[in-house]
Amino acid sequence: MSEETVPLARSPIATDPTVVVAGWEVCARVSTAPLTLSDETPLAKVLVRAPFGGAARDALGVSFGRTARVGLGTAGEVLLVGSAPGEWLALGAPGTAAAIRAALEERLAGTGEFVSVLDLTHGRALVRLHGAAAPVVLAGVCGIDLADHVTPDGTALRTSVAAVVTDLVRDDDGGVRSYLLHCERSSGQYLVDALRDAGSPSGLEVTGFRGLVPSSA
């Protein structure tokens, strides 16, 4: 018999030991290692579909392949990612998906363009690989050139990471290399396993949920 009476949201990534944050069961580990991997799946994830270039893009303020931190009023600050042609992903604090969706729909309503907004919080896995050696880890599983002049901070792209279709977002934290990796939820555990395997020689450690890096960081 299950003792669970209050619904807990669970990430697809093993989290032992656990702690509950904003209704999500997340990893309780705290690592001070220079290279860490954290499960950021609890972040709200809202998908926007709209014409590649036009009023909606202007309203969002982010082009394909780039990111920006955008304030959405009561929904708070989100990291808006131009993840594919005509596709944006808004990442926000856990539990804010509905507010983000409403704010985005309001912002885009006046564009007159065909737009759809969809909450994908539960449909995607999201992890953050953080540390100066992050490019070394990714070089073992991803063919993208991660040099500063090719993929600077704020770059977003979709590629294969360990044979999994993944949105790779460079989102440096305090001047330290940091990447968000976003894939289908069901592949999340595999992706994490592959990253841990590739990162083992570099001293990669798992740490707990970090949350979205605020723009002031």
Partner: peptide
């Protein structure tokens, strides 16, 4: 079911239908 709650609902179905 929103996937993050899949395990919760699965367990509740088994509990409720015992």
């Amino acid at each position: 079911v929103p996937a993050s709650y899949g395990l919760h609902v699965w367990q509740r179905l088994l509990d409720a239908g015992a």
